[in-house]
Design a protein around this nucleic acid. Structure first.
Lengths: 123, 123
DNA sequence: TTGATATATGAGCATATGTTCATATTTAGT
DNA sequence: ACTAAATATGAACATATGCTCATATATCAA
Protein backbone atom coordinates (compact mmCIF):
# COMPACT_ATOMS: atom_id res chain seq x y z
CA UNK A 1 0.00 0.00 0.00
CA UNK A 2 2.03 2.85 1.29
CA UNK A 3 5.32 2.92 -0.57
CA UNK A 4 7.20 3.48 2.67
CA UNK A 5 4.85 1.85 5.10
CA UNK A 6 5.36 2.89 8.69
CA UNK A 7 7.52 5.83 7.79
CA UNK A 8 4.69 8.29 7.48
CA UNK A 9 1.95 7.11 9.78
CA UNK A 10 -0.13 10.22 9.30
CA UNK A 11 -0.10 9.99 5.53
CA UNK A 12 -3.22 9.08 3.66
CA UNK A 13 -3.20 5.26 3.77
CA UNK A 14 -5.20 4.79 0.63
CA UNK A 15 -3.88 2.78 -2.32
CA UNK A 16 -2.14 4.75 -4.99
CA UNK A 17 -4.21 5.74 -7.94
CA UNK A 18 -1.12 5.24 -10.04
CA UNK A 19 1.81 3.93 -8.03
CA UNK A 20 4.17 3.68 -10.97
CA UNK A 21 3.58 7.31 -11.85
CA UNK A 22 4.39 8.37 -8.31
CA UNK A 23 7.66 6.42 -8.38
CA UNK A 24 8.52 7.90 -11.77
CA UNK A 25 7.77 11.43 -10.61
CA UNK A 26 9.67 10.96 -7.36
CA UNK A 27 12.81 10.04 -9.29
CA UNK A 28 12.82 13.22 -11.34
CA UNK A 29 12.17 15.62 -8.46
CA UNK A 30 14.85 18.07 -7.33
CA UNK A 31 16.84 17.54 -4.14
CA UNK A 32 15.50 19.05 -0.97
CA UNK A 33 18.24 21.68 -0.70
CA UNK A 34 17.52 23.00 -4.17
CA UNK A 35 13.77 23.12 -3.59
CA UNK A 36 14.36 25.11 -0.41
CA UNK A 37 16.65 27.52 -2.21
CA UNK A 38 14.06 28.08 -4.94
CA UNK A 39 11.31 28.70 -2.37
CA UNK A 40 13.60 31.13 -0.54
CA UNK A 41 14.19 33.04 -3.75
CA UNK A 42 10.46 33.35 -4.37
CA UNK A 43 9.98 34.40 -0.74
CA UNK A 44 12.43 37.23 -1.28
CA UNK A 45 10.17 38.43 -4.09
CA UNK A 46 6.91 37.91 -2.20
CA UNK A 47 6.47 41.32 -0.59
CA UNK A 48 5.00 44.47 -2.20
CA UNK A 49 7.70 46.72 -0.75
CA UNK A 50 10.44 44.56 -2.19
CA UNK A 51 8.72 44.36 -5.58
CA UNK A 52 8.57 48.16 -5.63
CA UNK A 53 12.26 48.39 -4.71
CA UNK A 54 13.18 46.01 -7.52
CA UNK A 55 10.94 47.83 -9.97
CA UNK A 56 12.50 51.19 -9.06
CA UNK A 57 16.05 49.88 -9.29
CA UNK A 58 15.34 48.25 -12.63
CA UNK A 59 14.76 51.78 -13.93
CA UNK A 60 17.63 53.50 -12.17
CA UNK A 61 20.24 52.97 -9.46
CA UNK A 62 19.15 54.76 -6.26
CA UNK A 63 20.44 55.38 -2.76
CA UNK A 64 18.68 54.23 0.43
CA UNK A 65 17.31 57.66 1.22
CA UNK A 66 15.85 58.18 -2.25
CA UNK A 67 14.20 54.77 -2.03
CA UNK A 68 12.73 55.69 1.37
CA UNK A 69 11.34 58.92 -0.03
CA UNK A 70 10.10 57.28 -3.21
CA UNK A 71 8.21 54.58 -1.32
CA UNK A 72 7.12 56.76 1.62
CA UNK A 73 8.71 54.49 4.19
CA UNK A 74 11.30 54.89 6.93
CA UNK A 75 14.98 54.51 6.16
CA UNK A 76 15.09 51.62 8.62
CA UNK A 77 12.31 49.66 6.96
CA UNK A 78 13.92 50.09 3.55
CA UNK A 79 17.34 49.17 4.87
CA UNK A 80 16.02 45.93 6.37
CA UNK A 81 14.41 44.99 3.06
CA UNK A 82 17.55 45.89 1.12
CA UNK A 83 19.54 43.55 3.31
CA UNK A 84 17.16 40.70 2.55
CA UNK A 85 17.41 41.37 -1.18
CA UNK A 86 21.20 41.58 -0.94
CA UNK A 87 21.37 38.26 0.91
CA UNK A 88 19.44 36.67 -1.92
CA UNK A 89 21.79 38.03 -4.58
CA UNK A 90 19.04 40.16 -6.02
CA UNK A 91 20.72 43.52 -5.38
CA UNK A 92 24.26 44.81 -5.33
CA UNK A 93 25.51 48.16 -4.02
CA UNK A 94 28.36 50.62 -4.28
CA UNK A 95 29.39 53.19 -1.71
CA UNK A 96 30.13 56.78 -2.58
CA UNK A 97 31.20 58.41 0.67
CA UNK A 98 28.41 57.80 3.10
CA UNK A 99 25.81 57.31 0.37
CA UNK A 100 25.10 53.70 -0.64
CA UNK A 101 23.70 53.18 -4.12
CA UNK A 102 21.73 50.02 -4.79
CA UNK A 103 21.03 48.42 -8.14
CA UNK A 104 19.93 45.06 -9.54
CA UNK A 105 22.61 42.41 -9.27
CA UNK A 106 21.38 40.76 -12.41
CA UNK A 107 18.86 41.53 -15.14
CA UNK A 108 17.56 38.00 -14.82
CA UNK A 109 15.49 39.08 -11.80
CA UNK A 110 13.89 41.85 -13.79
CA UNK A 111 12.92 39.32 -16.45
CA UNK A 112 11.40 36.98 -13.87
CA UNK A 113 9.37 39.86 -12.49
CA UNK A 114 8.14 40.80 -15.97
CA UNK A 115 7.32 37.18 -16.61
CA UNK A 116 5.09 37.01 -13.53
CA UNK A 117 3.52 40.38 -14.34
CA UNK A 118 2.55 39.20 -17.81
CA UNK A 119 1.27 35.89 -16.43
CA UNK A 120 -1.05 37.86 -14.19
CA UNK A 121 -2.38 40.17 -16.89
CA UNK A 122 -3.26 37.15 -19.04
CA UNK A 123 -6.14 36.19 -16.71
CA UNK B 1 12.98 69.01 0.63
CA UNK B 2 10.63 66.12 1.09
CA UNK B 3 8.61 65.76 -2.05
CA UNK B 4 5.42 65.42 -0.04
CA UNK B 5 6.39 67.22 3.11
CA UNK B 6 4.23 66.44 6.11
CA UNK B 7 2.69 63.44 4.48
CA UNK B 8 5.27 60.98 5.76
CA UNK B 9 6.62 62.38 9.00
CA UNK B 10 8.66 59.30 9.74
CA UNK B 11 10.38 59.31 6.38
CA UNK B 12 14.04 60.15 6.17
CA UNK B 13 14.03 63.98 6.01
CA UNK B 14 17.27 64.31 4.15
CA UNK B 15 17.54 66.03 0.79
CA UNK B 16 17.25 63.86 -2.23
CA UNK B 17 20.48 62.70 -3.75
CA UNK B 18 18.77 62.99 -7.10
CA UNK B 19 15.26 64.37 -6.83
CA UNK B 20 14.60 64.36 -10.56
CA UNK B 21 15.49 60.69 -10.78
CA UNK B 22 13.07 59.88 -7.99
CA UNK B 23 10.26 61.77 -9.73
CA UNK B 24 11.09 60.03 -13.00
CA UNK B 25 11.14 56.60 -11.39
CA UNK B 26 7.93 57.27 -9.49
CA UNK B 27 6.12 57.99 -12.73
CA UNK B 28 7.01 54.68 -14.31
CA UNK B 29 6.17 52.50 -11.31
CA UNK B 30 3.23 50.10 -11.41
CA UNK B 31 -0.02 50.80 -9.61
CA UNK B 32 -0.39 49.54 -6.08
CA UNK B 33 -2.95 46.89 -6.97
CA UNK B 34 -0.70 45.36 -9.60
CA UNK B 35 2.31 45.33 -7.29
CA UNK B 36 0.25 43.56 -4.64
CA UNK B 37 -0.94 40.99 -7.16
CA UNK B 38 2.63 40.29 -8.28
CA UNK B 39 3.82 39.89 -4.68
CA UNK B 40 0.89 37.56 -4.01
CA UNK B 41 1.87 35.42 -6.98
CA UNK B 42 5.43 35.15 -5.72
CA UNK B 43 4.11 34.35 -2.24
CA UNK B 44 2.16 31.43 -3.68
CA UNK B 45 5.48 30.09 -4.98
CA UNK B 46 7.46 30.81 -1.80
CA UNK B 47 7.01 27.53 0.05
CA UNK B 48 9.00 24.29 -0.43
CA UNK B 49 5.91 22.10 -0.30
CA UNK B 50 4.23 24.13 -3.02
CA UNK B 51 7.36 24.10 -5.17
CA UNK B 52 7.44 20.32 -4.89
CA UNK B 53 3.77 20.08 -5.82
CA UNK B 54 4.32 22.24 -8.89
CA UNK B 55 7.42 20.29 -9.85
CA UNK B 56 5.57 16.97 -9.54
CA UNK B 57 2.58 18.20 -11.54
CA UNK B 58 4.82 19.63 -14.25
CA UNK B 59 5.87 16.02 -14.86
CA UNK B 60 2.48 14.38 -14.56
CA UNK B 61 -1.09 15.01 -13.47
CA UNK B 62 -1.67 13.49 -10.00
CA UNK B 63 -4.49 13.08 -7.49
CA UNK B 64 -4.44 14.48 -3.95
CA UNK B 65 -3.67 11.15 -2.36
CA UNK B 66 -0.75 10.41 -4.67
CA UNK B 67 0.67 13.85 -3.95
CA UNK B 68 0.34 13.23 -0.22
CA UNK B 69 2.17 9.91 -0.55
CA UNK B 70 4.80 11.35 -2.87
CA UNK B 71 5.62 14.21 -0.52
CA UNK B 72 5.15 12.26 2.73
CA UNK B 73 2.58 14.69 4.08
CA UNK B 74 -1.00 14.44 5.30
CA UNK B 75 -3.87 14.69 2.85
CA UNK B 76 -5.09 17.73 4.75
CA UNK B 77 -1.83 19.64 4.48
CA UNK B 78 -1.63 18.94 0.75
CA UNK B 79 -5.25 19.87 0.22
CA UNK B 80 -4.76 23.24 1.93
CA UNK B 81 -1.75 23.96 -0.27
CA UNK B 82 -3.62 22.88 -3.39
CA UNK B 83 -6.37 25.33 -2.60
CA UNK B 84 -3.86 28.14 -2.32
CA UNK B 85 -2.32 27.22 -5.67
CA UNK B 86 -5.77 26.96 -7.24
CA UNK B 87 -6.74 30.39 -5.92
CA UNK B 88 -3.68 31.83 -7.61
CA UNK B 89 -4.51 30.23 -10.97
CA UNK B 90 -1.45 28.06 -10.78
CA UNK B 91 -3.30 24.74 -10.78
CA UNK B 92 -6.46 23.37 -12.34
CA UNK B 93 -8.24 20.11 -11.53
CA UNK B 94 -10.65 17.58 -12.95
CA UNK B 95 -12.82 15.16 -11.00
CA UNK B 96 -13.12 11.49 -11.85
CA UNK B 97 -15.59 10.05 -9.39
CA UNK B 98 -14.33 10.94 -5.95
CA UNK B 99 -10.74 11.29 -7.14
CA UNK B 100 -9.56 14.80 -7.97
CA UNK B 101 -6.67 15.12 -10.40
CA UNK B 102 -4.57 18.27 -10.29
CA UNK B 103 -2.32 19.65 -13.00
CA UNK B 104 -0.64 22.92 -13.93
CA UNK B 105 -3.08 25.53 -15.17
CA UNK B 106 -0.48 26.99 -17.46
CA UNK B 107 3.03 26.06 -18.59
CA UNK B 108 4.07 29.63 -17.93
CA UNK B 109 4.45 28.83 -14.23
CA UNK B 110 6.75 25.94 -15.01
CA UNK B 111 8.92 28.30 -17.06
CA UNK B 112 9.08 30.83 -14.24
CA UNK B 113 10.15 28.09 -11.86
CA UNK B 114 12.87 26.93 -14.26
CA UNK B 115 13.95 30.51 -14.68
CA UNK B 116 14.45 30.93 -10.94
CA UNK B 117 16.16 27.55 -10.67
CA UNK B 118 18.68 28.50 -13.32
CA UNK B 119 19.21 31.92 -11.76
CA UNK B 120 20.16 30.16 -8.53
CA UNK B 121 22.56 27.67 -10.11
CA UNK B 122 24.40 30.57 -11.76
CA UNK B 123 25.89 31.74 -8.46
C1' DT C 1 37.93 66.13 17.66
C1' DT C 2 33.19 67.21 17.43
C1' DG C 3 28.81 67.31 15.30
C1' DA C 4 25.91 66.07 11.60
C1' DT C 5 24.53 62.90 7.89
C1' DA C 6 23.62 58.27 5.65
C1' DT C 7 23.05 53.69 6.46
C1' DA C 8 22.82 49.30 9.25
C1' DT C 9 21.09 46.49 12.82
C1' DG C 10 19.01 44.31 17.15
C1' DA C 11 14.80 43.91 19.96
C1' DG C 12 10.00 43.94 20.25
C1' DC C 13 5.32 43.70 18.58
C1' DA C 14 1.33 42.77 15.63
C1' DT C 15 0.03 40.00 11.91
C1' DA C 16 0.64 36.18 8.54
C1' DT C 17 1.79 31.42 7.44
C1' DG C 18 1.97 26.17 7.45
C1' DT C 19 0.70 22.31 9.72
C1' DT C 20 -2.33 19.35 12.56
C1' DC C 21 -6.70 17.75 14.26
C1' DA C 22 -11.41 17.17 13.90
C1' DT C 23 -15.06 17.18 10.97
C1' DA C 24 -17.80 18.19 6.71
C1' DT C 25 -18.77 17.06 1.88
C1' DT C 26 -19.05 14.24 -2.14
C1' DT C 27 -19.21 9.96 -4.54
C1' DA C 28 -18.98 4.77 -5.17
C1' DG C 29 -20.38 0.31 -3.92
C1' DT C 30 -23.51 -2.80 -1.57
C1' DA D 1 -30.20 3.85 2.74
C1' DC D 2 -25.79 2.82 4.66
C1' DT D 3 -20.83 2.53 4.82
C1' DA D 4 -16.40 3.57 3.30
C1' DA D 5 -13.24 6.27 0.52
C1' DA D 6 -11.28 10.72 -1.39
C1' DT D 7 -11.12 15.33 -0.72
C1' DA D 8 -12.17 19.92 1.50
C1' DT D 9 -12.30 23.00 5.24
C1' DG D 10 -12.47 25.52 9.87
C1' DA D 11 -10.08 26.20 14.28
C1' DA D 12 -5.97 26.27 16.79
C1' DC D 13 -1.11 26.55 17.54
C1' DA D 14 3.80 27.36 16.77
C1' DT D 15 6.78 29.88 13.95
C1' DA D 16 7.93 33.48 10.52
C1' DT D 17 7.50 38.10 8.71
C1' DG D 18 7.53 43.31 8.30
C1' DC D 19 7.59 47.31 10.56
C1' DT D 20 8.98 50.56 14.39
C1' DC D 21 12.03 52.35 17.78
C1' DA D 22 16.38 52.96 19.63
C1' DT D 23 20.94 52.77 18.76
C1' DA D 24 25.35 51.53 16.38
C1' DT D 25 28.57 52.34 12.59
C1' DA D 26 30.77 55.00 9.00
C1' DT D 27 31.88 59.17 6.66
C1' DC D 28 32.12 64.07 5.82
C1' DA D 29 32.76 68.97 7.33
C1' DA D 30 34.30 72.36 10.38
Amino acid sequence: MNIEAGKFDDVCEINFTDEEAVILVRESMSEEAKVHRIAEMFKALSDPTRIRIIEALSIKELCVCDLANLLGMTQSAISHQLRLLRQNSILKYRKEGRVVYYSLDDEHVSEILNSVASHISHR
